[in-house]
Structures are given as structure tokens and as C-alpha cells.
Amino acid sequence: MSRWASADPASSGALLSVRDLKVTFPTEDGLVKAVDGLTFDLRAGETIGIVGESGSGKSVTSQAIMGLHRGTRAMVEGQIVFDGRDLIKIVDEDLRRMRGRDIAMIFQDPLSALHPYYTVGNQIVEAYRVHNDVTKAAARTHVIEMLDRVGIPNPQKRVDQYPHEFSGGMRQRAMIAMALVNSPRLIIADEPTTALDVTVQAQILNLLVDLQKEFGSAIIIITHDLGVVAELADSIMVMFAGKAVEGGEAEEIFYEAMHPYTWGLLQSMPRIDSEKKERLVPIAGNPPSLINPPPGCAFHPRCAFRDDARLGCSSVIPEFDISTEHPARCLIPEGERRAISQAKTKTRTA
């Protein structure tokens, strides 16, 4: 059984088992397949990074796990088994009780994710009291402790301030405190550092690592920035056009990447230790249509290594073999890709 386990999710021993998840949005132009058959497992206390460009379906995945598509026109199919219960089938009220208590979420832009008219303390106290039968005063004491724990100085004073009185980094710390206030078993961090200054980004990531050790929560970290997951994730899944295109341990993704899209992501990542004044190489082209995806491999129109005559990139849909430890959705024979990957890693790390 691999990391991407295909066996029965109930016996996989994983905290979260996503099986063939599909999220479809009906629009006037047709069905948008935002997530199209995603499968992965996440064990308690582990971290998985989901990486991909805008529109690859990574945020939609996280919101599907939280059940935030309920009550909208989005159609969610497949299985999301958390702690033995399928979150897609579970009734609204049961899911609501799990939200915030068992699964918490950290959003991208803490300024818009916090309510401007209520104090930070009020909002965190609310998150705590909805799942715990405690007095306001007790909740407030707990919240002040949490604010202190996430590194907000002077929490007794800060607890009564409004979000606009916080700096960007402090706001995200408050969001993290809000997510951790019920010691959830799973934290979904959706681009938690994208809206922050670069110096603050590192602090927030370190904080997440520390808190994960302390609280033992599993983390799904969603980002378009491979640098972010490098520090944090045990395993990484690369998404493109609603599908996983490569998955593996973090080390494997960085040093033995097996998919042309991942190579592109790695090449477009700036490196502080690079001695040569090399230019960043962008991945040419735009994200494909999710209504009418390109035939064959969805990445082939942008792929520098495509070989239609030999491999049929524009007609054959490549498989994603989740029974292996390091699957990649590509038609190029594995041996050739390994050779390309080694060459690329060499130039990148030289």
C-alpha cells in the first residue's frame, strides 16, 4: 500500500482519505471540472502540500473538504473520509460540529477573512465557545493564551483590538490562533503566506511547524509556491487542471521530479543560493480550459517535451498510478524522464 493508498479508506489508517474527488460547477458555458478525480491519504500529524498554479483546483479541494460548497450549485462527488466518516454524505449539522473543532482552516488574506466590525478576541472566543460549553470569561482567558502562543505580544490588550489595528503578519497569527483554538486534528492552510511580506512569510511558516509539533495536527498546505512546502511538507502533490500530475515525498519532488510541469515549477522558482545570474524560466502558456480540457494529456499544449508522433500526447490520456510511491501523469517513458530530471537537478543545484 502506497502513500496514495487505493485500498478501502476505512481501513487505511489514515486520518483523511480522499477518493476520486470531483468538484464540478455548472456555468452558462458548460460544466467546469475544477477538481477531476483526486485521490490521496493523509495520516495523523503529517503534512501534505498541494501545489499548483491558479485554477488548478487546489483551493476548491480544500473547500470541498470543509464542505464549504454546500448550499451552492457546485457538485461534489467521490469520498472524503475523515476519521471514518464520509464528509460528503454526512448531514449538515454533523459537518458543522466538525468544522472548526476537528478540521480548521487558515485563509489566504487575513484582512478580508476576519470580520471588520468585531474584535479579534470576540471572533476567536466565538470559535471556541461554539464547540465548548464554557463561560465567556474562561474562553477569553483561553484565547489570550492562544494569542500569546502564536507570538502576539501583549495579548491582554490585543484581544480587544479590531483586525484593522493588527499588522498583516499579526492578523495571520490571529487567524492561526483561531484555527488552533480547538486543537483540531486537521488544519487546512490555503495559501497562508501569499498575502504577507516575504520576511513575515518565514515567521508564519516556522510558527506553523512549531505549533504542529505541539498540537500534533495534520496539515494540508495549499500553495503555488514550492518554496513554502519545502520547509513544511512531508509529501507533496502537484495539481494541474483539476488533476494530480505528480505526487511524492517532498525530497523526491525537489530532487527527482518526474513530470514536465513540476520541472517547470522548479525552474520558475527563484533560488537564493544560486551563484549564477540565471533567469527564471516561466512555464509558457495559460491554464487550460476546465470546461473543454485539451484532448490527451491536459498539459501537452504547454509541454516542452511532448512528442505526439511517438507518444500520442494529444490523444492518449496518461494514467496516474496511485499504487506506486511516486506517481506521475506523463506518457514519456519513465527512464527518459529520470534522465531529464537528473540533468535538470544537476544544473539547478550546481
Binding site: 470543509m66 464549504l68 458543522r96 460540529r97 466538525m98 468544522r99 472548526g100 473543532r101 480548521a104 482552516m105 485563509f107 488574506d109 478580508s112 477573512a113 476576519l114 470580520h115 471588520p116 466590525y117 468585531y118 471572533q123 466565538e126 470559535a127 461554539v130 464547540h131 483561531m178
Partner: peptide
């Protein structure tokens, strides 16, 4: 976004509407 946060916190619909949305 803050209504999405309120839902993610597990607040009941009534509290989301009555407190967060209306304010």
C-alpha cells in the same frame, strides 16, 4: 471572506446570518 471564515469555524447558520452578515 469573513462569512466563509464564520462557516469554517462551525458557527450555526443563524449566528452567521444574525451576527456576521447583518452587522
Amino acid at each position: 471572506d469573513y462569512i466563509r471564515t464564520a462557516r469554517a469555524k462551525g458557527l450555526p447558520q443563524r449566528q452567521i446570518m444574525g451576527k456576521h452578515t447583518m452587522r
